[in-house]
Amino acid sequence: MSELNSQHLRKYPAKPKQVYLYGTCLADVLFPDSGIDAIEFLELHGVEVIYPQGQTCCGQPAYNSGYNEEAKSVALQQIAQFPLDIPIVIISGSCGGMMRHHYPSLLKDEPGVDAFCERIFEFTEFLVHVLKIKLTDKGEPEKIALHTSCAARREMGVHITGTQLIKQLDNVELVVHQQEKECCGFGGTFAVKHGDISAAMVADKSASLVAADVVKYVSADWGCMMNINGALEYQNQSLRGQHIATYLLNRTNDKAVSNKDNADER
Protein backbone atom coordinates (compact mmCIF):
# COMPACT_ATOMS: atom_id res chain seq x y z
CA MET A 1 0.00 0.00 0.00
CA SER A 2 3.00 2.27 0.12
CA GLU A 3 2.33 2.46 -3.60
CA LEU A 4 -1.16 3.75 -3.04
CA ASN A 5 -2.43 6.95 -1.54
CA SER A 6 -5.59 8.78 -0.62
CA GLN A 7 -6.63 8.80 -4.28
CA HIS A 8 -7.56 5.17 -4.00
CA LEU A 9 -10.28 5.84 -1.50
CA ARG A 10 -11.72 8.47 -3.79
CA LYS A 11 -15.38 8.34 -4.79
CA TYR A 12 -15.88 9.00 -8.48
CA PRO A 13 -18.89 10.69 -10.09
CA ALA A 14 -20.92 9.27 -12.99
CA LYS A 15 -19.89 10.19 -16.53
CA PRO A 16 -20.63 13.90 -17.00
CA LYS A 17 -21.85 15.65 -20.18
CA GLN A 18 -19.34 18.43 -19.82
CA VAL A 19 -15.90 18.88 -18.34
CA TYR A 20 -13.38 21.66 -18.07
CA LEU A 21 -9.92 21.12 -19.43
CA TYR A 22 -6.95 22.50 -17.55
CA GLY A 23 -4.22 22.78 -20.14
CA THR A 24 -1.25 23.74 -17.91
CA CYS A 25 1.23 26.46 -18.74
CA LEU A 26 3.80 24.08 -20.19
CA ALA A 27 1.37 22.57 -22.68
CA ASP A 28 0.05 26.04 -23.44
CA VAL A 29 3.27 27.50 -24.66
CA LEU A 30 5.42 24.49 -25.51
CA PHE A 31 3.21 21.50 -26.26
CA PRO A 32 -0.28 22.64 -27.28
CA ASP A 33 -0.93 19.54 -29.43
CA SER A 34 -1.40 17.43 -26.32
CA GLY A 35 -4.16 19.78 -25.15
CA ILE A 36 -5.93 19.64 -28.50
CA ASP A 37 -5.54 15.85 -28.56
CA ALA A 38 -6.97 15.51 -25.08
CA ILE A 39 -9.99 17.56 -26.14
CA GLU A 40 -10.50 15.52 -29.30
CA PHE A 41 -10.18 12.31 -27.37
CA LEU A 42 -12.70 13.37 -24.75
CA GLU A 43 -15.11 14.57 -27.43
CA LEU A 44 -14.81 11.27 -29.28
CA HIS A 45 -15.92 9.65 -26.07
CA GLY A 46 -18.97 11.83 -25.76
CA VAL A 47 -17.81 14.49 -23.36
CA GLU A 48 -18.07 18.17 -24.19
CA VAL A 49 -14.95 20.11 -23.22
CA ILE A 50 -14.84 23.70 -22.01
CA TYR A 51 -11.48 25.45 -22.00
CA PRO A 52 -11.63 28.68 -19.97
CA GLN A 53 -9.36 31.21 -21.64
CA GLY A 54 -8.59 32.85 -18.29
CA GLN A 55 -6.50 29.91 -17.02
CA THR A 56 -2.77 30.42 -16.73
CA CYS A 57 -0.70 28.30 -14.33
CA CYS A 58 -1.52 26.30 -11.21
CA GLY A 59 1.07 28.21 -9.19
CA GLN A 60 3.39 25.31 -8.57
CA PRO A 61 6.62 27.01 -9.71
CA ALA A 62 6.29 29.76 -7.11
CA TYR A 63 4.95 27.39 -4.46
CA ASN A 64 7.88 25.02 -4.84
CA SER A 65 10.27 27.92 -4.64
CA GLY A 66 8.89 29.00 -1.29
CA TYR A 67 6.93 32.00 -2.60
CA ASN A 68 3.58 30.99 -1.20
CA GLU A 69 1.97 34.41 -1.36
CA GLU A 70 2.78 34.74 -5.04
CA ALA A 71 1.51 31.19 -5.64
CA LYS A 72 -1.64 31.85 -3.65
CA SER A 73 -2.88 34.77 -5.70
CA VAL A 74 -2.31 32.81 -8.89
CA ALA A 75 -4.10 29.78 -7.44
CA LEU A 76 -7.13 31.87 -6.50
CA GLN A 77 -7.16 33.30 -10.01
CA GLN A 78 -7.35 29.73 -11.40
CA ILE A 79 -10.23 28.72 -9.14
CA ALA A 80 -12.23 31.70 -10.33
CA GLN A 81 -12.01 30.45 -13.94
CA PHE A 82 -13.92 27.25 -13.23
CA PRO A 83 -17.30 28.26 -11.81
CA LEU A 84 -19.50 25.40 -13.06
CA ASP A 85 -19.83 22.34 -10.85
CA ILE A 86 -18.33 19.96 -13.41
CA PRO A 87 -15.08 17.96 -13.37
CA ILE A 88 -11.82 19.69 -14.22
CA VAL A 89 -9.59 17.37 -16.23
CA ILE A 90 -5.88 18.13 -16.08
CA ILE A 91 -3.38 16.80 -18.56
CA SER A 92 -0.59 16.74 -15.98
CA GLY A 93 -0.29 14.67 -12.82
CA SER A 94 2.03 17.19 -11.31
CA CYS A 95 -0.28 20.20 -11.76
CA GLY A 96 -3.15 17.94 -10.75
CA GLY A 97 -1.33 17.06 -7.54
CA MET A 98 -0.73 20.73 -6.87
CA MET A 99 -4.39 21.63 -7.36
CA ARG A 100 -5.87 18.63 -5.65
CA HIS A 101 -3.47 18.09 -2.76
CA HIS A 102 -1.62 21.35 -2.15
CA TYR A 103 -4.35 23.95 -2.70
CA PRO A 104 -6.11 22.96 0.54
CA SER A 105 -3.11 23.91 2.69
CA LEU A 106 -1.97 26.82 0.51
CA LEU A 107 -5.47 28.32 0.50
CA LYS A 108 -6.61 27.02 3.84
CA ASP A 109 -8.72 29.99 4.87
CA GLU A 110 -10.33 30.57 1.50
CA PRO A 111 -13.94 29.50 0.93
CA GLY A 112 -14.85 26.80 -1.60
CA VAL A 113 -11.35 25.40 -2.02
CA ASP A 114 -12.19 21.88 -0.90
CA ALA A 115 -15.10 21.66 -3.33
CA PHE A 116 -12.81 22.87 -6.11
CA CYS A 117 -10.15 20.29 -5.25
CA GLU A 118 -12.77 17.55 -5.30
CA ARG A 119 -13.44 18.39 -8.95
CA ILE A 120 -9.82 17.89 -10.03
CA PHE A 121 -9.09 14.77 -12.09
CA GLU A 122 -5.90 13.84 -13.81
CA PHE A 123 -6.55 12.86 -17.45
CA THR A 124 -5.87 9.10 -17.15
CA GLU A 125 -7.62 8.93 -13.80
CA PHE A 126 -10.66 10.52 -15.41
CA LEU A 127 -10.62 8.05 -18.31
CA VAL A 128 -10.37 5.00 -16.07
CA HIS A 129 -12.49 5.89 -13.10
CA VAL A 130 -15.08 8.34 -14.44
CA LEU A 131 -15.47 7.42 -18.11
CA LYS A 132 -14.68 3.75 -17.38
CA ILE A 133 -13.31 3.79 -20.87
CA LYS A 134 -12.86 0.76 -23.14
CA LEU A 135 -10.18 1.28 -25.75
CA THR A 136 -9.87 -0.43 -29.12
CA ASP A 137 -6.33 -0.51 -30.41
CA LYS A 138 -6.03 0.28 -34.11
CA GLY A 139 -2.25 0.63 -34.31
CA GLU A 140 0.57 -1.67 -35.32
CA PRO A 141 2.29 -3.82 -32.69
CA GLU A 142 4.92 -1.89 -30.75
CA LYS A 143 6.77 -1.73 -27.46
CA ILE A 144 6.58 1.37 -25.33
CA ALA A 145 7.52 2.46 -21.82
CA LEU A 146 5.57 4.58 -19.35
CA HIS A 147 7.13 7.32 -17.29
CA THR A 148 5.02 8.61 -14.45
CA SER A 149 5.90 11.85 -12.75
CA CYS A 150 6.51 11.61 -9.02
CA ALA A 151 3.53 13.77 -8.15
CA ALA A 152 1.42 11.71 -10.49
CA ARG A 153 2.62 8.52 -8.86
CA ARG A 154 2.65 9.50 -5.23
CA GLU A 155 -0.13 12.06 -5.09
CA MET A 156 -2.46 11.06 -7.89
CA GLY A 157 -1.91 7.30 -8.31
CA VAL A 158 -1.53 7.81 -12.06
CA HIS A 159 1.00 5.03 -12.54
CA ILE A 160 -1.90 2.68 -11.98
CA THR A 161 -4.39 4.33 -14.30
CA GLY A 162 -1.78 4.99 -16.98
CA THR A 163 -0.78 1.34 -16.92
CA GLN A 164 -4.40 0.22 -17.02
CA LEU A 165 -5.05 2.28 -20.14
CA ILE A 166 -1.98 1.06 -21.99
CA LYS A 167 -2.78 -2.52 -21.07
CA GLN A 168 -6.12 -2.08 -22.85
CA LEU A 169 -4.21 -1.58 -26.13
CA ASP A 170 -3.92 -5.09 -27.56
CA ASN A 171 -0.96 -4.43 -29.84
CA VAL A 172 1.10 -2.48 -27.35
CA GLU A 173 3.63 -4.15 -25.12
CA LEU A 174 4.38 -2.07 -22.03
CA VAL A 175 8.02 -2.48 -21.00
CA VAL A 176 8.92 -1.60 -17.43
CA HIS A 177 12.26 0.18 -17.46
CA GLN A 178 14.92 -0.05 -14.75
CA GLN A 179 14.30 2.22 -11.74
CA GLU A 180 10.92 2.97 -13.20
CA LYS A 181 9.75 4.55 -9.94
CA GLU A 182 12.66 6.91 -9.72
CA CYS A 183 12.40 10.64 -10.33
CA CYS A 184 13.67 11.93 -13.70
CA GLY A 185 15.35 14.87 -12.01
CA PHE A 186 13.06 17.65 -13.18
CA GLY A 187 11.48 19.05 -10.04
CA GLY A 188 10.78 22.48 -11.51
CA THR A 189 13.30 25.05 -10.32
CA PHE A 190 15.37 22.20 -8.86
CA ALA A 191 16.62 21.42 -12.37
CA VAL A 192 18.02 24.94 -12.59
CA LYS A 193 19.07 25.56 -8.99
CA HIS A 194 20.85 22.23 -8.69
CA GLY A 195 21.57 21.60 -12.34
CA ASP A 196 24.37 19.11 -11.79
CA ILE A 197 22.33 16.83 -9.52
CA SER A 198 19.37 17.07 -11.88
CA ALA A 199 21.69 16.26 -14.79
CA ALA A 200 22.93 13.11 -13.05
CA MET A 201 19.35 12.03 -12.45
CA VAL A 202 18.13 12.62 -16.01
CA ALA A 203 21.22 10.90 -17.38
CA ASP A 204 20.25 7.74 -15.52
CA LYS A 205 16.57 8.04 -16.37
CA SER A 206 17.19 8.56 -20.08
CA ALA A 207 19.71 5.71 -20.12
CA SER A 208 17.25 3.31 -18.55
CA LEU A 209 14.54 4.32 -21.02
CA VAL A 210 16.93 3.78 -23.91
CA ALA A 211 17.93 0.43 -22.45
CA ALA A 212 14.28 -0.60 -22.37
CA ASP A 213 14.47 -0.84 -26.18
CA VAL A 214 11.10 0.74 -26.93
CA VAL A 215 9.89 2.90 -29.82
CA LYS A 216 8.68 5.63 -27.51
CA TYR A 217 7.73 6.29 -23.95
CA VAL A 218 4.53 7.96 -22.89
CA SER A 219 3.82 10.15 -19.93
CA ALA A 220 1.11 12.40 -18.59
CA ASP A 221 3.55 15.13 -17.54
CA TRP A 222 5.24 17.59 -19.83
CA GLY A 223 7.63 18.72 -17.09
CA CYS A 224 9.30 15.32 -16.97
CA MET A 225 9.13 14.89 -20.74
CA MET A 226 10.65 18.28 -21.43
CA ASN A 227 13.49 17.17 -19.18
CA ILE A 228 13.91 13.63 -20.52
CA ASN A 229 13.29 14.51 -24.18
CA GLY A 230 15.72 17.41 -23.87
CA ALA A 231 18.36 15.04 -22.57
CA LEU A 232 17.63 12.40 -25.22
CA GLU A 233 17.84 15.00 -27.97
CA TYR A 234 21.09 16.35 -26.57
CA GLN A 235 22.48 12.79 -26.56
CA ASN A 236 21.34 12.30 -30.18
CA GLN A 237 19.06 9.45 -29.18
CA SER A 238 16.05 8.85 -31.38
CA LEU A 239 13.78 7.87 -28.50
CA ARG A 240 11.20 10.49 -27.45
CA GLY A 241 8.32 10.75 -25.06
CA GLN A 242 4.80 11.49 -26.10
CA HIS A 243 1.89 12.74 -24.07
CA ILE A 244 -0.50 9.95 -23.23
CA ALA A 245 -3.47 11.93 -24.60
CA THR A 246 -1.83 12.10 -28.02
CA TYR A 247 -0.81 8.47 -27.81
CA LEU A 248 -4.25 7.19 -26.91
CA LEU A 249 -5.88 9.32 -29.57
CA ASN A 250 -3.45 8.04 -32.20
CA ARG A 251 -3.80 4.42 -31.23
CA THR A 252 -7.57 4.38 -31.14
CA ASN A 253 -8.56 6.75 -33.94
CA ASP A 254 -7.61 5.68 -37.48
CA LYS A 255 -7.70 9.20 -38.91
CA ALA A 256 -5.24 10.48 -36.41
CA VAL A 257 -2.53 7.87 -36.69
CA SER A 258 -0.59 9.07 -39.71
CA ASN A 259 -0.53 12.86 -39.62
CA LYS A 260 -0.24 13.69 -35.94
CA ASP A 261 2.37 11.34 -34.67
CA ASN A 262 5.04 13.02 -32.62
CA ALA A 263 3.69 16.46 -33.41
CA ASP A 264 4.75 17.88 -30.07
CA GLU A 265 8.30 16.67 -30.19
CA ARG A 266 10.40 19.31 -31.64
Partner: peptide
Amino acid sequence: AWTRVRSAPKPAAKTLHERI
Protein backbone atom coordinates in the same frame (compact mmCIF):
# COMPACT_ATOMS: atom_id res chain seq x y z
CA ALA B 1 22.36 24.69 -16.28
CA TRP B 2 19.46 23.33 -18.31
CA THR B 3 21.28 23.02 -21.63
CA ARG B 4 24.48 21.57 -20.20
CA VAL B 5 22.91 18.13 -20.71
CA ARG B 6 19.71 18.93 -22.59
CA SER B 7 18.50 20.64 -25.70
CA ALA B 8 16.55 23.82 -25.09
CA PRO B 9 12.77 23.55 -25.34
CA LYS B 10 11.21 25.62 -28.13
CA PRO B 11 7.85 27.34 -27.78
CA ALA B 12 5.13 26.12 -30.15
CA ALA B 13 4.03 28.24 -33.10
CA LYS B 14 0.72 29.04 -31.42
CA THR B 15 -0.35 28.62 -27.82
CA LEU B 16 -3.00 26.16 -26.72
CA HIS B 17 -5.20 29.11 -25.80
CA GLU B 18 -4.99 30.41 -29.39
CA ARG B 19 -5.45 27.01 -30.99
CA ILE B 20 -8.59 26.38 -28.98
